[in-house]
Protein backbone atom coordinates (compact mmCIF):
# COMPACT_ATOMS: atom_id res chain seq x y z
CA UNK A 1 0.00 0.00 0.00
CA UNK A 2 2.93 2.30 0.63
CA UNK A 3 4.30 1.37 -2.78
CA UNK A 4 5.93 4.18 -4.69
CA UNK A 5 4.52 6.78 -2.37
CA UNK A 6 7.50 8.96 -3.07
CA UNK A 7 6.30 9.58 -6.62
CA UNK A 8 2.70 10.42 -5.81
CA UNK A 9 2.18 14.05 -6.65
CA UNK A 10 -0.57 15.19 -4.36
CA UNK A 11 0.96 13.85 -1.16
CA UNK A 12 2.73 17.13 -0.45
CA UNK A 13 -0.44 19.11 -0.82
CA UNK A 14 -2.28 16.64 1.38
CA UNK A 15 0.25 17.07 4.17
CA UNK A 16 -0.14 20.83 4.16
CA UNK A 17 -3.89 20.74 4.58
CA UNK A 18 -4.87 22.46 7.81
CA UNK A 19 -8.58 22.83 8.56
CA UNK A 20 -9.94 26.15 9.62
CA UNK A 21 -10.64 25.80 13.36
CA UNK A 22 -13.80 27.92 13.10
CA UNK A 23 -15.35 25.49 10.65
CA UNK A 24 -14.39 22.34 12.50
CA UNK A 25 -15.72 22.97 15.97
CA UNK A 26 -18.54 24.61 17.75
CA UNK A 27 -17.40 27.23 20.22
CA UNK A 28 -19.66 25.72 22.85
CA UNK A 29 -17.61 22.62 23.53
CA UNK A 30 -14.33 24.51 23.68
CA UNK A 31 -12.28 24.65 26.86
CA UNK A 32 -14.07 21.89 28.71
CA UNK A 33 -11.21 19.43 28.91
CA UNK A 34 -7.80 19.04 30.50
CA UNK A 35 -5.05 17.66 28.27
CA UNK A 36 -2.17 15.99 30.10
CA UNK A 37 1.01 14.75 28.43
CA UNK A 38 3.41 12.44 30.24
CA UNK A 39 6.83 13.61 29.01
CA UNK A 40 8.64 10.45 30.07
CA UNK A 41 6.39 8.31 27.89
CA UNK A 42 6.30 10.61 24.85
CA UNK A 43 8.66 9.63 22.02
CA UNK A 44 7.98 12.70 19.93
CA UNK A 45 6.51 11.07 16.84
CA UNK A 46 4.42 14.19 16.25
CA UNK A 47 1.16 12.46 15.32
CA UNK A 48 -0.85 14.41 17.91
CA UNK A 49 0.60 17.75 16.85
CA UNK A 50 0.10 17.05 13.13
CA UNK A 51 -3.48 15.76 13.24
CA UNK A 52 -5.04 17.79 16.08
CA UNK A 53 -7.85 19.74 14.39
CA UNK A 54 -7.34 22.81 16.60
CA UNK A 55 -3.56 22.48 17.11
CA UNK A 56 -3.60 22.10 20.89
CA UNK A 57 -0.21 20.36 20.92
CA UNK A 58 3.17 21.38 19.59
CA UNK A 59 6.60 19.78 19.70
CA UNK A 60 9.10 21.57 21.95
CA UNK A 61 12.83 21.93 21.35
CA UNK A 62 13.42 18.48 22.86
CA UNK A 63 11.06 16.97 20.30
CA UNK A 64 8.38 16.12 22.85
CA UNK A 65 4.75 17.13 22.63
CA UNK A 66 3.57 19.92 24.90
CA UNK A 67 0.15 21.43 25.44
CA UNK A 68 0.11 25.05 24.27
CA UNK A 69 -3.56 25.85 23.64
CA UNK A 70 -5.52 23.75 26.11
CA UNK A 71 -8.48 26.13 26.08
CA UNK A 72 -9.01 25.36 22.37
CA UNK A 73 -9.46 21.62 22.92
CA UNK A 74 -12.78 20.30 21.60
CA UNK A 75 -12.35 16.84 23.13
CA UNK A 76 -12.48 15.02 19.79
CA UNK A 77 -10.35 12.24 21.28
CA UNK A 78 -8.02 11.86 18.30
CA UNK A 79 -4.77 12.27 20.23
CA UNK A 80 -5.83 9.92 22.99
CA UNK A 81 -6.79 7.21 20.51
CA UNK A 82 -3.77 7.63 18.26
CA UNK A 83 -0.93 8.16 20.73
CA UNK A 84 1.15 4.98 20.28
CA UNK A 85 2.85 5.51 23.65
CA UNK A 86 -0.26 6.11 25.79
CA UNK A 87 1.23 9.45 26.80
CA UNK A 88 -1.80 11.73 26.34
CA UNK A 89 -4.80 11.91 28.61
CA UNK A 90 -7.87 14.05 27.90
CA UNK A 91 -10.23 14.48 30.83
CA UNK A 92 -13.33 16.56 31.28
CA UNK A 93 -12.92 19.71 33.30
CA UNK A 94 -15.40 19.77 36.15
CA UNK A 95 -14.85 23.33 37.37
CA UNK A 96 -12.59 26.09 36.24
CA UNK A 97 -10.04 24.57 38.62
CA UNK A 98 -8.46 21.17 38.36
CA UNK A 99 -10.86 18.66 39.91
CA UNK A 100 -9.78 17.25 43.26
CA UNK A 101 -9.87 13.63 42.09
CA UNK A 102 -7.80 14.07 38.98
CA UNK A 103 -4.38 14.23 40.64
CA UNK A 104 -4.72 10.94 42.44
CA UNK A 105 -6.14 9.46 39.24
CA UNK A 106 -2.96 10.41 37.39
CA UNK A 107 -0.81 8.73 39.99
CA UNK A 108 -2.90 5.57 39.72
CA UNK A 109 -2.61 5.66 35.97
CA UNK A 110 1.12 5.04 35.93
CA UNK A 111 2.29 3.44 39.16
CA UNK A 112 5.89 3.16 38.07
CA UNK A 113 6.43 6.78 38.98
CA UNK A 114 7.38 7.98 35.53
CA UNK A 115 4.38 10.24 35.34
CA UNK A 116 4.79 13.76 36.56
CA UNK A 117 2.03 15.87 37.96
CA UNK A 118 0.39 18.44 35.77
CA UNK A 119 2.08 21.28 37.58
CA UNK A 120 5.60 20.11 36.90
CA UNK A 121 4.76 19.44 33.25
CA UNK A 122 3.50 22.98 32.82
CA UNK A 123 6.59 24.39 34.54
CA UNK A 124 8.80 22.44 32.20
CA UNK A 125 6.81 23.74 29.29
Amino acid sequence: MFRGSFVSRDREAYGKFTPNPDQVMSAKSKGKSIVTIFPDWCKGCGICAAFCPVKVMELNDQGKAVVVREEECINCGFCELHCPDFAIMVQPKVDSEIPAGSKSAHVNAAPNGSVESEKSIKEKG
Binding site: D40, W41, C42, K43, G44, C45, G46, I47, L81, H82, C83, P84, D85, F86, A87, A110, N112, S114
Partner: peptide, 13 residues
Protein backbone atom coordinates in the same frame (compact mmCIF):
# COMPACT_ATOMS: atom_id res chain seq x y z
CA UNK B 1 7.56 1.72 29.95
CA UNK B 2 7.65 3.50 27.52
CA UNK B 3 7.55 0.43 25.34
CA UNK B 4 10.26 -0.67 22.88
CA UNK B 5 8.50 0.39 19.67
CA UNK B 6 10.11 3.13 17.62
CA UNK B 7 8.76 6.63 17.52
CA UNK B 8 5.79 6.67 15.15
CA UNK B 9 5.25 2.91 15.12
CA UNK B 10 1.62 1.88 14.95
CA UNK B 11 1.94 -1.20 17.17
CA UNK B 12 1.18 0.83 20.29
CA UNK B 13 -2.10 1.98 18.74
Amino acid sequence: FPHVFCSGCGHGI
